[in-house]
Amino acid sequence: MLSLYVPGASPVHRAPAGLKLAVLAVLGVGLFATGRLDLVATALLLVLATGLLWARLPFRALTAQVRPVWIWLAALFGFHLLVTGPLVGAVAVLRLLTLVVAAAVVTATTRVTALVAVIEWLTSPLRVFGVRPARIGLVIAMTLRFIPLVADRAARIREAQAARGADRVRLAMVVPLLVQVLRMATTVGEALDARGAGDVPGRRPRRRAAAENLGTT
């Protein structure tokens, strides 16, 4: 399954997902509250030590997630060098880099299912507004299941059109694809209803079962 999770048994891996997210949030607030280079640099070193030494993540696992941000950070530093000076620039860049690496560590050490559970927990206060957290879990499970399905349908339509001599991706292929997958989603919704997923009165148990049957693989 495609995921940025790197399996492991370190204390960081085993820490509760909610705790890790809370630490990340506190770090984010703290970093933006300070403008001191030494504090920000220390934070970056601590985060790197947590990821590489404590969680024993391969260096590549972190750089893979940081790479997309490099260009932004470089541009940002270049701008500060020209306008406000190197010190402010270094703080701004290191601050963002620290946060990005910290977030990468959380992502690499926490299973998708654990994070989905945190989302369900975080959204549970929304019950007041009629939101049912278990249904959020169901939607995420369905999304994970639909990704390969949609990709497969797209590939099939592309092949069919290539066989007729169309060599480029065209709008004409997007419409039949959308209609196909919309029809599929309608069927899935009806099938879930037929199995009791839409029952409102019973609080949770059945919907849980539905989410598990759909399988996050």
Binding site: R135, L138, V139, I140, M142, T143, R145, F146, I147, L149, V150, A151, A154, V181, L182, M184, A185, T186, V188, G189, E190, L192, D193, A197, G198
Partner: peptide, 17 residues
């Protein structure tokens, strides 16, 4: 409705693809 949940999941999946 459950159907609406399926549509929501579908477009989230389309974004991913």
């Amino acid at each position: 409705k459950t159907k609406d949940l399926a549509y929501i999941a579908l477009f989230a999946a389309i974004m991913a693809v």
